[in-house]
Amino acid sequence: MNVRKGGVADAAALAELRGVDGHKLGAYADWVAAHADTHLPFVAELDGRVVGAAWLLVAQRVPSNESMGRWYGDVQSVAVREEYRGRGVGGALIAAILAEARTRGLLHVTVHSSRRAVDFYLRNGFVHDRELLLWEPPAS
């Protein structure tokens, strides 16, 4: 398996993994290009085929007296083709993202997980945090 940083050249595979309709591929590729500095896709390939992807959002927090450069990350849109699940693809993608986070010196990396994936993230180095709170607008 090869895990690497992706980009616009991978837009079709990234869109397919996200369930983006083919007629929206151009707009999706434009979005990938426009957000290349903040949303880093990582792709996992087996036999020349993209079988999984995960994104690292890199964002900056408001500077403090201690540091003007307070960068953090957020894992987004992890997807592995169903027939390749259970083969370590997801873990390899997360390992690549966390290696990138270390290289960039990020303060921390968060993930907003579905309930079924919580154990996966716990196995891959994430922990529950009592300080992370969530607000959602009320249903209208």
Rank of each mutant, 00 (worst) to 15 (best):
V43Y: 00
L46M: 13
W31Q: 05
R49Q: 13
R70L: 03
S77N: 09
V75S: 01
R18W: 07
L17C: 04
N124W: 07
D10L: 01
L46C: 14
T110R: 07
H35M: 12
A99Y: 00
W135K: 08
M68H: 11
R4F: 02
A95Y: 05
G52P: 06
I97K: 02
R102D: 15
W71P: 01
P137Q: 13
R87A: 15
L122D: 09
L134I: 15
V111F: 02
G19Q: 10
G52I: 00
F42G: 02
G69N: 14
E131K: 11
D74I: 03
I94C: 00
S64F: 07
R85K: 13
K24W: 11
A13F: 02
H35D: 12
M68D: 10
R85V: 03
K5D: 09
E83G: 13
H128V: 14
L40P: 03
S113W: 00
N65G: 08
N2F: 08
A12F: 05
L40E: 01
E66V: 07
G86C: 11
I94K: 01
S140C: 15
L25A: 07
D74N: 08
A44K: 05
V62C: 06
H112Q: 07
K24F: 14
G91W: 08
R116C: 07
D21I: 02
W71F: 05
I97E: 00
P138S: 12
K24P: 00
D129E: 14
H23L: 09
R49K: 10
L134W: 07
A101H: 02
A15Q: 04
A29Y: 08
F120H: 08
P41I: 04
E83Q: 13
Q76C: 06
V62P: 04
S77E: 11
F42I: 05
A53S: 15
S77M: 09
E16F: 02
R81C: 05
H128G: 13
A79K: 15
